[in-house]
Every structure is written in C-alpha cells, then in structure tokens.
Amino acid sequence: MKKRKLNIAVTGLNAIDSPGPGISVIRGLREADSFDVRIIGLSYESLEPGIYMHNVVDKTYQIPYPSAGTDTLLARLEYIHEIEKLDVIIPNFDAELFPFIKLEHKLKAMGIQMFLPTARQFEERQKVNLNTFGEKYGIHVPKCKILFDLSAVHSLSSEFVFPVVVKGKFYDASIAYNTDQVRSYYNKISAKWGLPIIIQEFIHGTEFNVTGLGDGKGNTMAAVAMRKQYITDKGKAWGGISIADEKILGMTRKFLKNTKWRGGFELELMKNKDNELYLLEINPRLPAWIYLAVGVGQNIPEALVNLALGNKVVPYKDYMVGKMFIRYAWDMIVDREEFEQISVTGEL
C-alpha cells in the first residue's frame, strides 16, 4: 500500500557542537513506517548545517527570530504554507516554543498540525518555577532560588551549601564554588540570556536523561532512558547508551500522568549516592539525541506526527537496552552560491 506523503516543517537544523534536535528528528521521520515525508527546514541562521544537507532536508526557509513577534512569524509561515502545503510543524527550540504554542490555533485553522505542550505546561516547567512544579506534582527537585538582582547573592551562603549551579532562564549553567563566582556567572549569563538567574542546589551524582512522548491525557506513549558517556565542554552528550532503570522510567510515567504532558520532552535527572533521583530540568521538546530512541525501537518523531494528525498511536512499551549513540562531525563542501541564496533570498 502506498504511504501518504506528508510535508513536515522542522526547526533546529543547527547540527553543531551544541546541536539542535532537527536533524535527528528528521532521520526518525524519514524512517517512519506509517508515512513518507517531504522535509521543509526552518532556519534562523545561514550557516545552520542542515540547510545544506540536501539528502536530509528537501527545502529550507529562513524564519524570523522569536523576538520579532508572532505576527511576523505567522506571516512568514503563511508564505511558506502557500508554497509547501505544510501538514505538520515540529518546533525544536525552547525559545521558539512559546510563539508556536500561541499560534497553534491559527495554524490549525490553516490546516497545519502541531503536538505541543499547553501554555500552562510550558510555563509550569520553566526553571524559575521548578520548586513549585516539584511540590505540585510530587517530584523531587533540587532547591532553587530565583535572582533578579545581584544584591541577593550575599545571602546565598546561609541558604545553600556550596557549590551551587548558576543557570540562565533558557540556556547555560555553571558551577560556582563561592559568592564571587556566583556574581561572575550571574553577569556573564544574564548578559547573554537576560534575567532572572536561577541558583540551584548542586546534586552530586550521576546524570541521566529520558526522552519521551505524552499524549496530553496522562499516558506514556514512549520513553527511553539514556546515560551520557561522553560529554562535551558545553555539557552536551557526544555519546550515550540506552539503559533500563525502572526508577527513572517510573518517575517519567509519574511526570506524564500527573502533568498530562502533551508532546515530546526530555527530562534531565541526577541520581545521588543514596540512589535518590532529582529532576533537574524539563526540556519541552525532543532532545538532540532523539535518534537513539529511534535506533532502539521507539520512533518518537513518527509517533508525535501521528498524534498531531489525530491518528491512532499504540504506545511503545519497551526498547533495546545497551545500544549506544556516538555523534560525529562531518565537513561538507558547499558552493558559495548556495550560501548566497539562503542569505539573500531566505530560501534554499
């Protein structure tokens, strides 16, 4: 039987040292059993490698940064939709999710489906709200304090045991061993990502990650746990292995059941020496290592698209354990004309 061909737009084509998830998501979509795809890349910068990977991305359009506002984004998406007849959009950056959530109804009216967390879910899991989130849903999280100005730094010594983790609202995290270092990281991170800055209790232990998919009704549609084996200086996994830790998967199911999470996600977890699990962060989108989930038997990008289209999806129950992913860098040779075209016309 001939499979339906879907036009799916994907962001996060920056397959760099701190990679966006786009390319891995597309690999999953291209291996889907239930549909064929034409992939429309949505890029922000002219040097995002995915733009030039023509065997992965069929056509790319630049889109405006979230700071340009939702009207500008909507106008650009209307233009792209007119040409490409999009069926589904999969946004893959934290910072762009809120504008896409805001546009969900308008895009749906145009015939474009997405499967995103609700605005409430998106807000609740923000780093600044993590303590409240942990209390509300009965999930163990590290103690956090939100800083809006430097004057509050001096009181940290009485509230926390050093070291502490200094985190930006969206990205970046550094470990500070004293208040002087907190001030330094505060300035550095806030200059890049703005305020507030989050001070988080440092949990000694081993880091684990889970990616998965919630159907918005409390059901676990997919979940794969991974331990990072090779970490870059930016803290990103360059290699990892699938694991079967029932405690981690149990926490994941609890998270989905209690929050009724809708869409893809990644949980960042820390297990201390007493075997206690802490939830450090909830990323409201699929991670860059999502292809490991596909490789071990859970094609989460495919399931996400089917949920977006309202198709019946059978939840994944298990996966292969002990499978590794090892990332690599690959130099492409690109004609200058291609760079010029995407830079000047915003399309390639």
Partner: peptide, 18 residues
C-alpha cells in the same frame, strides 16, 4: 538482574549504563 557479561570480558550494567 540483566547484567550482561561478554566472552571478551566486558560486564555491562543495563540499569546504570556502566
């Protein structure tokens, strides 16, 4: 449970990934 031991002498713990 589920600890894998290969003939080459590698021991893999599937719970921790070590």
């Amino acid at each position: 449970k589920n600890v894998a031991v290969s003939d080459a002498g590698l021991v893999f713990n599937p719970v921790t990934g070590e």
